[in-house]
C-alpha cells in the first residue's frame, strides 16, 4: 500500500527505487542549499520590509525602505560606481581572456606552464591578492608607482583620489578573473573542428579572416557564457573594495569606491540597518536578474549555435 503513495516517482517498482536513490543522493546538497541559501534569501526578502537593528524587535514598515532608496545619494553613487566597474572590467576581461586563450591554444613551448600561470590568480584568495595590490598601488613607494615613474605616472594617489580609485579595483578584478575566463575560452576553442580552419585556408582566408569568420562565430556560445558570468561577477565586487580601501578611507572618499555589494554590507554590519540592507540586496538581485534576462534575450542576435544550422 505504501508503494501506491510513491507512484508519482515512476511507473514500476524499479524506476521508483531508482528515483528514490537519486533523491537520496542529491538530498545532502539540496538540503544544504535550502537551509543555508534558500531560507535565508526568503528571510532577507521579508526583512526588507522591516526596520530592524538586530537588538530591538523588527518593525514592519511596508515599502519605506524602498522609498528611502530613491532619495539615498549614496545608493545612487554605489549604483553608478557598480556600472562604471562593469564598463571597466567586463569588456577588458573578455578581450584579454580571449586573446590569451587564442595565444595559448597555439603550439607554444611552455604552454602548460603559461596556462597555469594565468590561472594562478583565480586560486589566489582575493583578500590576499588585494592586499598585495594595495601595496603595489601606493603612491611613491608602491612597485607600480616606481615602474610608472619614468613615464611621469609615478605620483598618482591611486587609492584615495576619487577620480582614480576605481581603476586599481578594476585592475585587480580583471587580473583575477582572467584565468577563469581563459580556461572556458580554451575549452571553447578546442571544440572548434579543425576541418573548418582547413576549409577556410583552402578558400584562401588569411589568419585574421580565419579568426574573424571561423573562431569568433564558433566561439560565440562560449563568449556569451563568459559574458554573463563576468557581468554577474562585476555586480558582486566587494572584497577588492573592502580590502583596498580599508587602510585609507573605507569605501573611498565620498563613497568613490563604494559598490552596491559593499554599500549593503556597510548598511547591515556597520550601521546595523538590516532591513534597509536587505532592501538594497533585493534591488541588486532584481538588477542582476533583469540584466541577465536582457542578455539571454539578446543572444539570438549574435550567438551562433552549431545545432541550429545542423
Amino acid at each position: 500500500m505504501a508503494s501506491s503513495r510513491l507512484n508519482f516517482l515512476g511507473p514500476t517498482p524499479l524506476s521508483r527505487r531508482r528515483a528514490l536513490w537519486g533523491m537520496a543522493l542529491i538530498a545532502p546538497n539540496t538540503l544544504g542549499l535550502l537551509f543555508f541559501f534558500g531560507i535565508p534569501v526568503l528571510i532577507a526578502f521579508w526583512t526588507s520590509f522591516q526596520q530592524w537593528n538586530a537588538l530591538k524587535p523588527p518593525v514592519y514598515i511596508g515599502l519605506e525602505n524602498f522609498e528611502r532608496l530613491v532619495d539615498d545619494q549614496m545608493f545612487h553613487t554605489a549604483l553608478t560606481n557598480t556600472l562604471k566597474l562593469l564598463g571597466l572590467t567586463v569588456p577588458l576581461e573578455i578581450v584579454l581572456a580571449m586573446g590569451v586563450a587564442v595565444l595559448l591554444n597555439q603550439p607554444l613551448a611552455g604552454r602548460s606552464l603559461l596556462r597555469t600561470a594565468y590561472f594562478l590568480p583565480v586560486v589566489t584568495s582575493t583578500v590576499a591578492a588585494s592586499i598585495v595590490w594595495t601595496g603595489a598601488f601606493q603612491q611613491r613607494y608602491g612597485i607600480l608607482s616606481s615602474l610608472l615613474e619614468p613615464v611621469g605616472l609615478g605620483d598618482y594617489k591611486w587609492l584615495v583620489d576619487p577620480g582614480l580609485v576605481l581603476i586599481p579595483i578594476a585592475a585587480v578584478t580583471v587580473w583575477q578573473r582572467l584565468g577563469f575566463d581563459m580556461v572556458i575560452f580554451l575549452a571553447g576553442l578546442q571544440s572548434i573542428p579543425g576541418v573548418l580552419y582547413e576549409a577556410a585556408t583552402i578558400d584562401g582566408a588569411n589568419r585574421w579572416q580565419r579568426f574573424r569568420h571561423v573562431t569568433l562565430p564558433m566561439l560565440s556560445p562560449t563568449t556569451f557564457l563568459v559574458m554573463v558570468l563576468a557581468v554577474i561577477n562585476s555586480f558582486q565586487i566587494f572584497d577588492q573594495v573592502y580590502v583596498m580601501t580599508l587602510r585609507t578611507v573605507p569605501g573611498g572618499v565620498g563613497g568613490s569606491a563604494t559598490t552596491l555589494a559593499y554599500y549593503l554590507y556597510r548598511r547591515a554590519f556597520t550601521d546595523s540597518e538590516f532591513g534597509y540592507a536587505s532592501a538594497i540586496a533585493l534591488v541588486l538581485f532584481v538588477i542582476i536578474l533583469s540584466v541577465t534576462v536582457v542578455q539571454l534575450a539578446g543572444q539570438r542576435m549574435w550567438v551562433y549555435y552549431e545545432a541550429e544550422k545542423g
Binding site: 603612491q139 611613491r140 594617489k157 584615495v160 585609507t248
Partner: peptide
Amino acid sequence: PSVSIVGSTS
C-alpha cells in the same frame, strides 16, 4: 607626510 605616503590612515 601625506596619507598616501604613509600608506594608510593608521
